[in-house]
Computed example of a mutant assay.
Amino acid sequence: MTPSCWPLYGLSVTTPRLELRLPGLPLLEELAAVAAAGVHEPGEMPFSFPWTEGSPEQRARAVFQHVLGTVAGWRPENWTLSLAVVHDGRVVGRQDLTARDFAVTREAQSGSWLGLAHQNQGIGTEMRAALAHLAFEGLGARALTSGAMTDNARSLAVSRKLGYGEDGLETVAVRGRARTVRRLRLDRATWERRRTVPVEISGLRPCLELFGARLP
């Protein structure tokens, strides 16, 4: 996939172990296969939207359509950047950054998942650190928000490790049941104090107008 028509395909965020980039069709097929293989244990549901329900084929299709939909529906005032996370040449998960009216609010929200086979290796923390660097250093964000079910200890631990503070609770309906989401917030000053993962960004300049961002 070439970035001539859609420069976001030329954007890359790298850490010592990972590369995050918008997947073209070959990487998107890999990402869908990771989702098909499972991203959480049976009986759990860590997501507000239960997209992991159904067969492996349905999970793969949901991921495939989601990523293509973010490209088709992108507007500078309402966007989701859905990045494939690559480790040792293999796709291992997805990291999203979403914002509405970013040019005004300078706030964005993160969301992510990792394939079961790639969890408990520190990858979740490193890929979120990469996204925070993109948001703050690359796009000039003032704050980054996230959220996790109150019983999702691993996700909450990643957020706290990176400096997110608690930002209240929210009740959501998931599969006909009330679930509680803990909202989290990371401001720029805290990020600057807490960041430890080296991150490099390439290919960002041609993308800035798509984000509603200005050149730092």
Rank of each mutant, 00 (worst) to 15 (best):
G43I: 06
E44Q: 14
E44H: 10
M45Q: 14
F47P: 00
F47Q: 07
S48N: 11
S48M: 12
F49S: 11
P50H: 05
P50I: 13
E53C: 11
E53W: 01
G54H: 07
S55C: 05
P56R: 09
R59L: 03
A60L: 04
V63Q: 12
V63A: 02
V63F: 01
F64H: 14
F64N: 08
F64P: 00
H66L: 13
V67G: 07
A72D: 03
A72C: 08
P76D: 05
P76L: 06
E77M: 01
W79N: 03
T80F: 01
T80R: 15
L81E: 01
L81K: 09
L83E: 02
A84S: 11
V86F: 04
D88P: 01
V92K: 07
V92G: 08
R94D: 07
Q95M: 14
L97A: 14
L97Y: 01
A99Q: 08
A99R: 10
V104A: 14
V104F: 04
E107Q: 14
E107T: 15
A108Y: 00
Q109A: 15
W113D: 01
W113L: 07
W113S: 04
W113H: 06
L114E: 04
L114T: 06
G115T: 07
L116A: 14
A117Y: 06
G122R: 13
G122I: 14
T125V: 12
E126T: 09
M127H: 07
M127N: 03
R128S: 07
R128F: 02
